[in-house]
Structures are given as structure tokens and as C-alpha cells.
């Protein structure tokens, strides 16, 4: 653009911000939002943009990775030795527990064979790294370093060493977005281990809190109850540890009880997580929508397949069809 262009305000009539323009742009934004929210028409745009945003995410995550590396480099030797010793101890415990569990698993398969139950579908997991990128502080979504190319699919459950973290909601070629169970838009069907009561745990937007509304007064639930995923809805395999009931109180209408629970998983933004490959996925009806959030879990009457007991012994699987 030749000619001196003043850096500051031009004195001539100001172009293109009349009310008509405003209305047009607002309408356009509205159309785009509806198209994105309702129809998912814009997946192509997102996929194309992912090629550009991917490298940027890596750049943004770099300082945090560098800091980690620097910390590892300067950490005191004795501290490392201490950490090492602690990990050895943990490993020992874990191995002992695994040994016991494999025995239980053997027994379980034998019993199932006796019952002529359909073969239990296994649970495979894959390690993925969380990326240090903050998408939106008011939404609990995390970027995962791994996408469609690594076999990650929308709807897969994600957990850390202690419990369920959330599920995959968006997959790009080499990245994916994980929604935490504490996101205000997330719900996970759960079961109280002690009583078998089934209900739904909603995210609250606070990292340490799940909300279980609308529990009948007659139901038996109290602080200290462990919650596991119930497997209803089909997105989460049954029996994964979810959280611990912290508080039970009557809700505002005083006709139901509301419980608050603390999730087991550390909802941190860094580190590594397990993405579960549920083999049921292959058996899923092709028409089953993959939208992970909302929707009553009962809408999908999947057989309540009890999950791999090997994942956690704190959650003895209580199949819905248990005799006695």
C-alpha cells in the first residue's frame, strides 16, 4: 500500500462499522456456532486447522517440558535416590497385588466358563501424554499428545493410576481432546460399591468435586462410599474407580438427596494417562452416536459386561446378573 499511511486515526469518515455490519457479523457468528454445536458440520475446518495448530501447541508446551527437564537435571542426587526408593516400594506393592489379582482373574474366568457366560471382553490400554496447554480455565478439557493416527477414537475412557479421569471428545490426526469428569458438561454413570445403587455423577466445574443429584431419600448412600463406573451408557467400562462420596445432604427441593464426591484421579494437567481401548467398541451398533456427553445412560441397553478386575482390586465387580 503506497503512500504515507498515518499510524493514528484517520480523520475521514470511518468505514465498515455501521450497525448493519455489526448485525451481519453477529448473525454470521450465530450461524457458525449453531452449525458447529448442532450439526458438527465444521469438522472439516477443524481437521484442516489442526495441521496448523498442532505445531503451535508443541511450542507452547515447550517451556513446561523444558522446566521439567531442568528440574530433573538439577535435582539433588539424594532426592532422586529417595524418589527411586519410593517408586521401588510402590512397584513391589503393585506387583504383589497383581500377583494376587491374576489368581483372582484365573478363578474368575474359570467360574465364567462354568456359567457358560459369554467370553469377557478384555480391556486394552494405551499410554498417552497430556500436553501443557490451557484451552479454557472454565472448561475441564485437556489436550492429549496422540490422536487418530495412534488409534485413539472419540468416546474412549481415560484414566490415571488412581481412577477415571474422563473421556476423549475430539480426535485430530495427532492430538485429541480429553474432557474431564469434572467438566460442567460431563456426566458419568456410576454405581455405589457398597450397595449397588446406580446413579449419575455430574461434573461441577471444580476440579475436586462431582455432584450426584436426585438420589431418593430411601436410597442408602453415605460419606465414605466408593463409586465405580457402572458401565451403563457404554462409554465407560464397568468397575473403574471413579470417586469417594464426601458429603450427603438434602437438595433444595428437599425431596431428594444430593451427594458430593471427590474423584480419585488426580486432575492434573501434566503427566501421562491411560487411554482404554474397549473391545466392545467393535461390537457397537454402527448407528450408535458417539457423542459422549449428556443423554440418559439407559438409552443404550448394553449388556453390563463386568470390566477387567485386574485394573483395581478395590472394586469387586458385582455383575447385574449375580446369582443370590
Amino acid at each position: 500500500m503506497p503512500g504515507p499511511v498515518p499510524d493514528t486515526a484517520p480523520l475521514f469518515a470511518e468505514p465498515s462499522h455501521g450497525t448493519l455490519h455489526l448485525v451481519a457479523y453477529l448473525a454470521l457468528a450465530g450461524v457458525v456456532m449453531v452449525a458447529d454445536h448442532r450439526g458438527h458440520y465444521l469438522e472439516g475446518v477443524r481437521q484442516a486447522a489442526a495441521r496448523l495448530t498442532g505445531p503451535l501447541y508443541s511450542v507452547i508446551g515447550a517451556p513446561a517440558r523444558l522446566a521439567d527437564a531442568a528440574r530433573a537435571a538439577v535435582t539433588d542426587r539424594s532426592e532422586l535416590a529417595h524418589e527411586n526408593a519410593g517408586m521401588r516400594e510402590q512397584l513391589l506393592f503393585a506387583q504383589a497385588r497383581l500377583a494376587r489379582l491374576s489368581a483372582v482373574q484365573d478363578q474368575n474366568t474359570r467360574l465364567r466358563e462354568l456359567l457358560a457366560a459369554r467370553t469377557r471382553l478384555g480391556l486394552k490400554a494405551q499410554l498417552a501424554e497430556l500436553m501443557e496447554v490451557d484451552l479454557d480455565p472454565f472448561r475441564h478439557r485437556i489436550l492429549l499428545d496422540g490422536g487418530a493416527e495412534d488409534g485413539i477414537r472419540s468416546g474412549q475412557a481415560v484414566m490415571d493410576a488412581r481412577g477415571v479421569m474422563g473421556q476423549i471428545i475430539e480426535v485430530q490426526p495427532s492430538r485429541s481432546v480429553l474432557i474431564l469428569i469434572t467438566d460442567p458438561g460431563h456426566a458419568i454413570p456410576v454405581r455405589v460399591v457398597r450397595t449397588g445403587l446406580r446413579t449419575i455423577a455430574y461434573g461441577t466445574g471444580e476440579l475436586g468435586t462431582l455432584r450426584l443429584p436426585h438420589i431418593p431419600f430411601s436410597a442408602d448412600i453415605r460419606p465414605g462410599d466408593a463409586l465405580v463406573s457402572s458401565g451403563l451408557g457404554g462409554n465407560f467400562p464397568a468397575g473403574l474407580p471413579v470417586g469417594l462420596v464426601r458429603q450427603v445432604e438434602p437438595d433444595d427441593s428437599a425431596t431428594f438427596v444430593r451427594a458430593l464426591a471427590t474423584p480419585y484421579a488426580g486432575m492434573a494437567r501434566s503427566g501421562e494417562v491411560l487411554v482404554l481401548h474397549d473391545e466392545r467398541e467393535l461390537l457397537r451398533a454402527p448407528g450408535y452416536p458417539d457423542t459422549p456427553m449428556s443423554g440418559p445412560p439407559e438409552a443404550m441397553p448394553l449388556p453390563a459386561v463386568s470390566a477387567d478386575g485386574a485394573l483395581e482390586d478395590a472394586a469387586p465387580p458385582v455383575p447385574a446378573t449375580a446369582p443370590q
Binding site: 455489526l22 457479523y25 450461524v31 457458525v32 477443524r46
Partner: peptide, 17 residues
Amino acid sequence: DLLTGGLLGEQSLRLVA
């Protein structure tokens, strides 16, 4: 919006306003 993976058009509307 593309960068933060939010609803497409949300930040557009806010910024236009």
C-alpha cells in the same frame, strides 16, 4: 476458537461486539 477447540464462532461474536 480453532486454537482453543471451543465452539466455533463464540470468540468471533465476542470480539465483534
